[in-house]
Design a protein around this nucleic acid. Structure first.
Lengths: 342, 342
DNA sequence: ATGACTTACATAAACGTTTTTCTTTATGCG
DNA sequence: CGCATAAAGAAAAACGTTTATGTAAGTCAT
């Protein structure tokens, strides 16, 4: 009545479940060719495939990883989910998916994942998560011996295993690009400042300014979320401060800037140069294709899965933090200033 | 050394695992208050949480559903994944996530899901899937007594349980909107014609034309994928046919149209009116906010999870096909023709 | 012919739960 | 007092696998 079990196969052939098991798993054992064939035939006929729950119970291998992201509507995370899922599938792992919607539900997700015996938890922390929540995630995971691999978002602790892109460098590259083209009044819209990602990108922005001996002006910095609305809401005030360029620390923020800029009758890049962050596919298809810092999501995905599935070795030998380099992808949303052109 | 088991708790308190189990699960049983408290205390102290694999084995309830989508980079599916995940989490279900990347891997996903004892499979078929693959999915699932709920994409069989939006109506609404504003030369870019979704939207387009006694002109129809590139590549030729409006059967296609139109120096909606499909969040932030057919993804998600978790009842009582109505969201990408304005 | 291997398979324990059934002791009632 | 019932909990089976150990027969060398 239920689905075919190993016992059904064993009965069909007239052998023990042991024999079926070793044959199906190609273990080196002394089983006659005839028996083997009979078992394969019966398994095929009965459409037998092992119940992975039972397999996991005894082998202690679930072939499952958990993936927690804060916002799947953000194309960066959508792509990350895709890459990680594909990469895991390649290694015959399935992915349990959690999305916190940027609420501090990380602990719940980690709990649920542990209860389901995942072999690793890939965690992109939500923006609003408290330090105490993070600590709880780690203590739960430690106790259960499940590794956590942080992705993208960083936590200040040397023992944490983490795959991410150098956000400081990204902010630096974006800002330097604007400076090289003559811009000096450059605004910056950040994500939430309680997130390390936001901070690092801002620090990169500041470093570039300093390198070009431009005084950092805090009033040119706006803080929000990594969302379209943030760009839309903050741009007008910043523009009033006589800026010629703006660094949006996510592409979604840049989209909001575009929107507001067009509403204000501005032209991009003539009236305002914009650099984004994430290098979403859509950037190419904006009226002024958006110059943006690329995170190379595929590389992140491949690395994070590699770390997740070989945690022990990685933990022992490699550095615990894999830091990838971002790149600036230049499109058409930035223009040299008049002075520079002369 | 391993994680805390029910036995650890039982030993700590000095009772049997039975007692711990019934207490933890709040079963009506004759267990003294003191014992109960001791068990709760020990469980808390040892940080005990039941191994869901073991629980699933014996209860035959995995509290897990599988979700298969063809393309998570498409915002429609990203939102769908989000809604379904949230809705499932509300009911204390976790989601195993599969993305086929529009390759015909549906069968593999279904197999993997079944092997992991999911209680239902929510399946958004990939575009390029063969009828035979679909049949195989169903026969595998039937055998394992796992329900499949089709979402969005439709298969012509009355026994199939399916939650989707009326794509024919959507195509009709989009086209009718253009017709009402005086447009007569209206192009249409479809998704792949082997997908029912594409067909239905096209049929709606044709029905609206007929209602307005406009002759259907096949040369005004372009076929591609539901992707930006399709709009970008097909628009120029269609525009050469003297059209005043175009119905893009996905927003992503419309983005491609925008891109090409801007490159051609056209203005939207002055030179060309555009209607999209999916009502992505980004539509609001395009230079000309895109009028689009809304699928109400939240509603789809809520319905599909409801069906998934109450399959038996739904299957018995309700119609097997839940058909939701799309709505047209009017923004600023469509303009009345000169004739109409007079 | 004896012991040692090899071949071919079976038995049984184990994974961590839930659940059915059973046992023991106490309690109530006529 | 005797019997039924309730209370408190334990034993054991079950879920579907894998795996360590066991066993019986055959082979081979000495």
């Amino acid at each position: 009545m239920g689905r075919t079990t190993i016992r059904d196969v064993a009965n069909q052939v007239g052998v023990s479940t042991t024999t079926v098991s070793v044959v199906m798993n190609q273990k080196k054992h002394h089983i006659s060719k005839e028996t083997q064939e009979a078992i394969f035939k019966a398994a095929k006929k009965l459409n037998y495939r092992p119940n992975q729950l039972a397999v996991s119970m005894v082998t202690k291998k679930s072939n499952t990883i958990a993936l927690v992201v804060p916002d799947i509507l953000n194309p960066f995370f959508a792509e990350l989910v895709n890459c990680i899922g594909n990469e895991a599938a390649k290694h015959n792992y399935t992915t349990i998916f959690y999305c916190t919607n940027d609420q501090p539900l990380d602990v719940e997700c980690v709990k649920s994942a542990i209860d389901r015996n995942v072999e690793a938890i890939i965690l992109a922390l939500s923006n609003n998560v408290q330090k105490s929540n993070i600590d709880e995630c780690y203590s739960l995971a430690d106790e259960a011996h499940v590794p956590i691999i942080l992705v993208d978002r960083y936590v200040d602790s040397c023992d944490v295993v983490c795959v991410r892109v150098d956000h400081e460098l990204g902010g630096y590259l974006a800002t330097k690009h604007l400076l090289e083209l003559g811009h000096r009044q450059i605004a910056c819209i950040t994500g939430p400042m309680n997130s390390d990602v936001s901070k690092q990108r801002l620090f990169g922005y500041i470093r570039a300014l300093q390198e070009y001996r431009v005084l950092f002006d805090p009033t040119l910095v706006g803080e929000g979320m990594f969302q379209v609305e943030t760009g839309y809401n903050l741009f007008e005030d910043l523009y009033a401060r006589n800026i010629s360029a703006i660094f949006a620390s996510s592409d979604t923020i840049a989209y909001g800037i575009y929107k507001k800029a067009y509403e204000m009758g501005l032209s991009i890049p003539k009236d305002i140069s914009v650099v984004g962050y994430d290098n979403n596919t859509y950037n190419d298809f904006l009226p002024a294709p958006l110059t943006s810092v690329s995170q190379n999501v595929k590389m992140i995905g491949a690395n994070v899965v590699k770390v997740a599935l070989n945690y022990e070795e990685v933990y022992k030998t490699d550095s615990h933090q894999i830091l990838l380099k971002p790149e600036l992808v230049v499109r058409k949303s930035v223009m040299a200033t008049e002075q520079e052109k002369e």
